[in-house]
């Protein structure tokens, strides 16, 4: 049953990706200018360049040639920002950095957020509530680049603990500040969500019934509260992860992290079609894959999804 469901999901995902690619391709045709905007080029030279890359053919032919090449793992070459470098090479250089920083921020933020949320929901202490409120409010209200500035000033400039700019010779060390800056919002969102879910579960009839049977608090927390309050948190995590991977652009720029955020802005401003399409496509694929993984996790942890919702 699970296998059938997965096959269906994957087929739908492939169809969606194909559609996204088509739309991206068509949209790029409406962008002003061409990759070869150099004023020194004569119209004839420009035409010759276009012809050599096959850009003089009708869009639909370009599209199917692109899809065909893509299936063979060839995403084309960059036209302008790094001429004739295969895009797969560009991605291979830049993507791992973004992914690593994204995942590290997600894990750090989630761990701290879940602990903060659960602890605040369980113990009715005023001090804890205060800490929780300040941290979550700051995390949600203050944009991450402000944290980045703050961290640069304190940990970087004053304390000289971490490098101000990304240094590829010590990737872990120089990821600390970007990860901290990015994980703050993750922590805040997860903490708020976890707390409200845990409070709902604590008040629920089934926890009340469990208390009526005299189960120990430990049993109730482990078997009744943790799972039921953390399942919905998974959904939020997926959204945050995609946000981290695609939206860390400003942070990447501030710390000069050689990730894909920076690559995308450059590519768009210089009409580097292939890079734009490849990156947009990768972003879409990423989103769809994350959602697919999320569904699979849901299937594993939540019997209501796994077994279907039919009462007999």
């Amino acid at each position: 049953m699970m296998g059938k469901y997965l096959r269906k999901r994957i087929l739908i995902s492939v169809a969606i990706l194909f559609l996204i690619l088509l739309i991206l391709f068509l949209l790029l045709q409406f962008m002003p200018g061409s990759p070869f905007n150099d004023a020194k080029l004569t119209p004839e030279q420009s035409e010759a360049l276009k012809k050599s890359y096959g850009l003089d053919k009708p869009v639909i032919i370009q599209f199917f040639r692109y899809v065909g090449n893509m299936l063979r793992g060839d995403l084309g070459v960059s036209y302008s920002i790094s001429p004739n470098t295969p895009i797969t090479t560009l991605l291979a250089n830049r993507f791992p950095v973004t992914i690593r920083i994204g995942f590290m921020s997600l894990i750090l933020g989630t761990v701290i957020g879940v602990i903060l949320g659960l602890v605040t929901a369980f113990f009715k202490s005023r001090i804890l509530k205060g800490i929780y409120s300040v941290l979550t409010l700051l995390g949600i209200a203050v944009p991450s680049y402000l944290f980045a500035v703050f961290l640069s000033w304190t940990l970087g400039y004053k304390a000289k603990l971490f490098p101000l700019l990304y240094d590829f010779r010590s990737p872990l060390y120089s990821s600390v500040m970007p990860v901290m800056a990015l994980s703050f919002i993750v922590m805040a969102v997860i903490a708020r969500f976890t707390k409200s879910e845990a409070e709902d579960v604590l008040r629920s009839d089934y926890v009340m019934l469990a208390r009526c049977t005299g189960m120990s608090s430990r049993t109730i927390i482990v078997k009744y509260i943790l799972r039921n309050s953390l399942i919905p948190v998974i959904t939020v995590m997926a959204g945050l992860l995609v946000g981290l991977l695609t939206g860390s652009l400003v942070i990447e720029k501030m710390y000069a992290v050689p990730g894909i955020g920076e690559l995308l802005t450059n590519a768009i401003s210089s009409n580097d079609y292939n890079v734009v399409i490849a990156l947009s496509f990768v972003y879409s694929a990423l989103y769809i894959v994350v959602m697919l993984i999320l569904d699979i996790i849901y299937c594993i942890v939540d019997p209501r999804v796994r077994l279907g919702g039919k009462a007999e």
């Binding site: 629920s204 009839d205 089934y206 009340m208 019934l209 469990a210 208390r211 009526c212 049977t213 005299g214 189960m215 120990s216 078997k223 009744y224 799972r227 039921n228 399942i231 942890v301 939540d302 019997p303 209501r304």
Partner: peptide, 28 residues
């Protein structure tokens, strides 16, 4: 909890739709 709840006094609630843990089997 140790000496009264469940063993001496127990309770049945109004709404059976919300009285059971949704992520645990009936047996568990």
């Amino acid at each position: 909890r140790k000496t009264i709840n469940g063993t001496k006094i127990a309770m049945v609630f109004q709404d059976p739709m919300t009285s059971l843990n949704p992520t645990m089997s009936i047996g568990a």
